[in-house]
Simulated assay, not measured.
Amino acid sequence: MTLPLNHFKRALKEGRQQIGLWNTIAGPVVAEALAGTGFDWLLIDTEHSLTDVPDVLGMLQAVSAYPISPVVRPAANDPVLFKRLLDFGAQTLLVPYVQTAKEAQAAVAAMRYPPRGIRGAGGTIRANRFGTVDDYMNRAEQELCLLVQVETAATLDQIEAIAAVDGVDGLFIGPNDLAATMGYTGNPGHPVVKTAILDAIGRIAATGKAAGILTLDRDFAQECMEKGSTFTAVGVDLVTLLGGVRALARDFGRG
């Protein structure tokens, strides 16, 4: 068996814009339905959703038949969580709350097998197609992609240091947490926050690493892309679902 290619990682290296969608509703049915909608990548979230580590396996299997790249967000920068998700076959992780180069280095180590890292060595796992991928442990790193979240005001000063860490493929701005730490809790659309985000995206792009963002503001998403964001998430499944259902209820005099 051949090692599965990470098309998302290749696209980021080539600077090709990847438009994404957030999947917060647990289970394979919604994940599979979303996988066929035409987005480039789908974020399977285990940090701020009911989705837990065992759920991720079925969700990865459900989307595997579609031309979309799954990205998984673990609940924390934790090597045990990384090990399980990577063994399930996740090739791209988006790691929350990485504030320093040292924390980024810890995330990189958890992605890599010894001697370059600390990832535990499982033999018969989905990631190596149940033992059929030749020399998987020495080759896996080629197709793994690590994205880290910059989501505090203090971390903005650490962007260049984090980007300089070997093994970090991209930096993602977390608007809600960033806004809160800047004193604008619940208001990621405040002009001061937006200015900080655009500046951060430009600085990330200048380092040569990929810059990313999640925003439901379509105009701001365009601004972010113009500034250099190359993995840009523009929707959340639950938000879209509720928006549509509430509009339907209003059309019939309800809600």
Rank of each mutant, 00 (worst) to 15 (best):
L198D: 12
P115A: 08
A154H: 07
H190Q: 15
A107S: 13
P115K: 05
A164Y: 08
E226K: 08
V108D: 12
I204Y: 08
N187P: 00
V193I: 05
G183L: 14
P191F: 07
R203K: 10
T124S: 13
V148A: 13
G186M: 06
A127R: 04
D177L: 05
I213Q: 00
A154P: 13
A196P: 13
A140G: 11
D217W: 00
E223V: 01
D169W: 02
L147D: 11
A121C: 14
A109K: 01
A154N: 10
A179M: 06
A161D: 13
A200S: 06
A127H: 09
K102S: 14
A210G: 01
T155Y: 03
I197F: 08
R218Y: 04
A163N: 00
V108Y: 08
V193S: 13
I162C: 02
I173G: 14
V192P: 11
L147F: 12
K227Y: 13
D134G: 04
A104Y: 02
V150F: 14
P115M: 06
A210I: 01
A121G: 08
C145W: 08
Q142W: 00
A211G: 06
A180R: 02
V165H: 09
L198T: 04
L178C: 14
I162R: 02
D217H: 07
I201F: 09
A221W: 02
K102T: 10
A164Q: 09
Q142A: 08
D134A: 14
A140N: 12
A180Y: 03
Q149V: 07
V133I: 10
G212Y: 02
C224Y: 02
